[in-house]
Design a binder for these strands. Structure first.
Lengths: 202, 202
DNA sequence: GCCAATACAATGCGCTTGCATTGTATTGAG
DNA sequence: CTCAATACAATGCAAGCGCATTGTATTGGC
């Protein structure tokens, strides 16, 4: 009976306004009025789609996490579909995706770090940011094992722990990149150096 | 001519109140009134010592960074003064200090991550958080070279890059610990595993 | 055509915020 | 003792906040 609108589209637009504001002014700078202005809608509409500011932010963060996961998945598929379908290429592509090479990646990376900060004192947010239950780790461990086999070098070490380290290292480098303490290229070089050690130096 | 008070002590107490509030409610929860209440002083005193909220927060963060550096230095000296003065022991002690083993360390770690989040959209804060200009990296690189020599194993790799990786990894693990996604013990295990690879597996 | 449900828009309220202002108590120099 | 500088304490204020409320325009079912 009502005016028919695309709810998902509305929420996504609001979420993107929250992202933009968070990047520009931090999570504390996200207010109902500013989000409305940023999205170019009335404050009434914002309230209509979110019961409270807190819920609005949570929705925006949830969507950001989903977008980040989607990007990793996409980059893996893109690498796997290329002519070079070696495990090593996929592994690199997958890890580098976390360092914010392109613009959207950089935005999501900086957004993640901004949310990390708030999640320290907000368990609800921390839960939203929590990584997948080992699925990604399994995938990465498989890629590491595969890449080692490709190189034909014998390397001691549990692939799962090595995968864990790779992601933790990517996180640490990502923080530096997000804060402007390191360029993306420098971070990729460091991560590449580490991978050489993990896969067995040629 | 005036009433004589210890300015440094006043500022330090206010800074600690800011820390506590940041940990409990995030940086956005730090207000003049709350800081005054937390420190058990009047709001007038807070204003007397800080021209603005922003300057107050910056001072508190600066003091936190200094405290963190002091802790690393202390742990290095403590390790060097012990009976086991091997480079490897010092190296481990130094890196583990970043993971928040004791209570104060954990507080400073969580505080750092909280500030990271704000620093993404606040260059002035990012500058305050910026690490020392390679001094720490040089020290760590020296310890890595020393530890390798102790083990008597030939390991390929530039100690400086390896040191860089160690700290970036510690940062990544620290974020996980701060968010409660990893226990301190688990983080230490992972870091220890990485060090085995860096120093040459026995 | 009517009705009820939806999707907003507009306004208002109570509260909190950073900060300015003003008043006052304390001190050491002269 | 006087005086001026310091160290607060107390209060006030405009702005901005989240949220509640109310009004209105649009739609599809009957």
């Amino acid at each position: 009976m009502p005016k028919v609108v695309d709810h998902e589209d509305r929420r996504q637009r609001l979420a993107e306004a929250v992202w933009e504001l968070t990047l520009r002014e931090g999570l504390e700078g996200v207010t109902l009025r500013k989000v409305a202005a940023e999205a170019g809608v009335s404050m009434g509409q914002v309230q209509h789609y979110h019961a409270s500011r807190e819920e609005m932010v949570r929705d925006a963060v949830t969507r950001a996490v989903a977008a980040l996961n989607a990007r990793i998945e996409t980059s893996v598929k893109a690498a796997a579909a290329g002519e070079e379908t070696s495990a090593e290429v996929i592994l690199r592509e997958c890890l580098y995706a976390m360092l914010g090479r392109d613009e959207e990646g950089a935005r999501l990376l900086r957004l993640s770090v901004a949310v990390f900060g708030r999640a320290v004192s907000d368990p609800a947010l921390a839960r939203v940011m929590a990584p997948d239950d080992g699925e990604l780790l399994d995938l990465t461990a498989g890629l590491i094992a595969g890449a080692r086999a490709e190189r034909g070098k014998q390397v001691a070490g549990d692939p799962r722990v090595d995968a864990d380290i790779c992601w933790a290292l990517a996180t640490g480098l990502g923080v530096d990149v997000a804060l402007g303490l390191r360029t993306v290229e420098a971070a990729e070089t460091v991560l590449g150096y580490h991978l050489e050690g993990v896969l067995g130096r040629e």
